[in-house]
Every structure is written in structure tokens, then in C-alpha cells.
Write a protein that binds this DNA or RNA. Structure first.
Lengths: 220, 220
DNA sequence: GTCTATATCACGATAGAC
DNA sequence: GTCTATCGTGATATAGAC
């Protein structure tokens, strides 16, 4: 984080930090609606109420702004995943993350659009997006492995664990894409049902989502 | 299809039809790599070896070209789904579609990139992409309903059927996205395993993918 | 820290020759 | 059917005033 070095400086920088944040949030909206290539600095600047020059002042270039936006998304996203959720709980908490996403369509729209665009090796955000998936899948593998050690799930080989974790996150991305295209579908209910299919194959018994919601409320 | 009206005309149009096809295939590559907004007619024209003016001659506008590319994708895709596959067979055949996609990365890259971009209501391809998902999900719902009537799967309510079908296609999109970002993952094996989780919840017994492959080879 | 002004460039689309 | 030439627009990024 660039702002970390200036966060505790007094006085005149406070406006800059606030403005910086405004720019990032506008940029997330614009990149989400038109993609990275399709969104323009002009458009973002107009939303914020400044000129394009102010944007390059803060972020050097359009690419620099994109990276800042992606970092912002990761922060927002991690906030919805309490570090206390370990083992099987990690996956039972996924619908909660999805629920949070429904309240900020811009971020998920931005992420999926940029992720698809950045899948090309020559895209400026390719490295960032690749590392992001590595991290997310890696964390999932760690927690499902933990669940296996704890006896929360049936025995699985390491490669089976990777496949199952990839499937769970693939389901999440895919359902969210369908919801972007048709927002009338019940995103959380659909996701719960399909994720429940997968998790119940792991554990051998049905998932009681109501009980999960109660437990989640007790220990947030 | 526009070319349908000229496909069986003699002589001088043959070159035009062939060129038209070249343009569409190049456009699919370029739109896949840079998105619709990010890809340019100049770039496509250069790949084909003509000037941008030739492109607008054939397709009127950039948007017209995009529509032609999406139609082309649908044709290519439908070719991998034999109409003979009904009921549960429809879903058992999904990994075959995915396998075909691995052999033409450009098309799946184009589709996912444009689908994410076009999720915005103001995107020129929004209507097209929305109808496409409606059709795909609708077909899936029809076949899973048929499977229910045939007793191939456990009883399910109509709304449960919709959720399960959405989940199956979400899984497919999501896994393909992960494969675009990291092509070293075993796309088909991962998809088979996770789809198997879902289908076995429907039927109550494990999916024997080897048997599916044998049956598919017998009746293509 | 933000502005105005501008340099430089690429875009989609069109007109008209061949 | 494709070309050359060009128009008008809008993009990123920079320079220098305030």
C-alpha cells in the first residue's frame, strides 16, 4: 500500500488521501462497466469532479490506477472473510461473501470483467490476477486439507483437494457472472444450493445453511 | 445467418465468403485478447491482411462485426452438442464440450471476455449475451426436467432444477476462466470431478466417466 | 494539489478511385 | 471487393501556471 507511508502524516495530506479513495471507487465503477481498455481516465475524472491530469498525478498512469483498484478490491474482499474461519467453516462462509458482493455490484463487475480481460498474458494486470487466484486457491486448499486432518470431511488425495477447491471458487465466479447478466436470479440461494451439493459430497451429510447462519452470527 | 442467403450462389461471391470467415476468426482472436472495447478494427484488419475499410464494407460497423463473431461462436459451440443428447446425457456430455474448447482457446477467451464486458446493460452485445444465457439455461432446464420424468434423477422441484442447471453451467464458466488464467491446470479432469459431485447428488450414485466416454464414442 | 493547455497518437467511419 | 486518403473524435500523458 502506497498510502501506508503517508497515512499518519498530519495536516495537508488528509485531503489527498480522501480524494485518492474517491478516485479508486470511481475507477472501480468505470472499469467494471466498460472494462480496463474501454474505461477512460476522462470518464473517471468527470465522476470525481476533477480533470484527468489530477488522476495521473496520483497514480502516474492508467495502469497504476488499475493496480490500485485491484488492491482496493482485495482489501474489501478480505474484510468479508474473517481469519477465524478455518477448515470446513471457510467454505460454509462463502455464501456470506457472495451476499456482500450483491451489495456492491461495481466491485464484482469490475473484478470479473478485468479478470477475463487480464487472462491474456500481455495484459498489464495479468501478473496481479494470476497471483490473486494462486492465493485464493492456495488458501482454500490449506483449509480443506485442515478439514481433512480434523476429520470434518471424507479422506481425499491432495490432487482431489485442489480440484474440489477450484470447483468451489469456479462455481462462485460463474454464478456471479450469471447474476451480472441477469440480476433477477436469486444469487445467494442458487449458490448455497450448488455449493451444498459439493460440500455434502465432502462430508457425507447435508449442509444445514440455517445452522451455519446462526453459528456465523454468534462468532463473527 | 447473413451468409445463408449467399451460400449457394455461384461464382464471384466465393472469395467474399471465405474472406468474411477469415475476418470473423481474426476478430474472435482480437476481441478475446483485448475485449470488444480494447480490440481495434485496425488490428483485426492487419491480421487478415486487408485495410480497416474492407471490414466495415463487410460488416457495416464494429458492432456488426461483434454480432457476427458471437453468432459464429454459437454455431461452433452447438456443433459440439449433438441434438441426440437428451435427459441426463446432456450434462454427461458437458466435459466433451469443454475438451473441444481447450483446442480453440481463442473462442472461449473471446466469449468469457465479452460476456463479462457485456453484462453491463449499455454494452452493444448485452441483449445478445442475455438471450444466449437464457437459451442455454433453458435447454438445460428442459433436459434435467426430462431426466426427472424418466426417473434418471431423484425428484426435484422446478425451482431446484433451475438452480442446479445454473450451477452446472456456472461451474463450466468458472473453471474455464481459471484455465485461461493458468493453462497448466487439468481443465477437463477438474471439471469432470466437480460436475460429478453435482450429478451424483442428482442420481444418488457415482458417475462413471469412462463408461460415459465409451457410450459417447458409440453414438456420436 | 489541481488547473489549463497541449503534444501525440489511435480510433471508427466515410468518400471515391480502380 | 479492396484500396488510398482523410475527417472528426477522443484517448493518455506532459508542461507549466497558480
Amino acid at each position: 500500500m502506497v498510502s501506508a507511508s503517508t497515512a499518519n502524516v498530519r495536516g495537508p495530506y488528509k485531503n489527498g488521501i480522501k480524494r485518492r479513495r474517491e478516485i479508486i471507487e470511481s475507477a472501480a465503477r468505470v472499469f467494471g462497466q466498460f472494462g480496463y481498455a474501454g474505461g477512460s481516465l476522462r470518464q473517471i475524472a468527470q465522476e470525481v469532479g476533477v480533470t484527468p491530469a489530477a488522476l495521473t498525478r496520483h497514480f502516474d498512469s492508467k495502469e497504476g490506477l488499475l493496480v490500485a483498484v485491484l488492491d482496493y478490491w482485495d482489501e474489501e474482499n478480505d474484510r468479508t472473510i474473517p481469519r477465524s474461519r478455518q477448515g470446513l467453516d471457510r467454505f460454509l462462509g462463502m455464501p456470506t461473501s457472495v451476499l456482500h458482493h450483491t451489495m456492491d455490484r461495481g466491485l464484482i463487475e469490475m473484478f470479473l470483467t478485468v479478470a477475463a480481460e487480464a487472462s491474456n498474458p500481455r495484459h498489464p494486470a495479468n501478473e496481479h490476477i494470476r497471483r490473486r487466484y494462486e492465493r485464493v486457491i492456495g488458501n482454500g486448499v490449506r483449509e480443506l486439507t485442515r478439514a481433512r486432518e480434523l476429520g470434518q470431511v471424507h479422506p481425499m488425495s491432495d490432487s482431489e483437494i485442489v480440484a474440489e477447491v477450484r470447483g468451489a471458487y469456479a462455481l462462485m465466479d460463474g454464478i456471479q457472472l450469471q447474476w451480472l447478466i441477469d440480476p433477477t436470479i436469486d444469487l445467494v440461494a442458487t449458490f448455497k444450493r450448488c455449493l451444498g451439493d459439493i460440500i455434502s459430497k465432502w462430508t457425507g451429510h447435508e449442509v444445514d445453511w440455517d445452522a451455519v447462519a446462526r453459528d456465523g452470527a454468534e462468532t463473527p
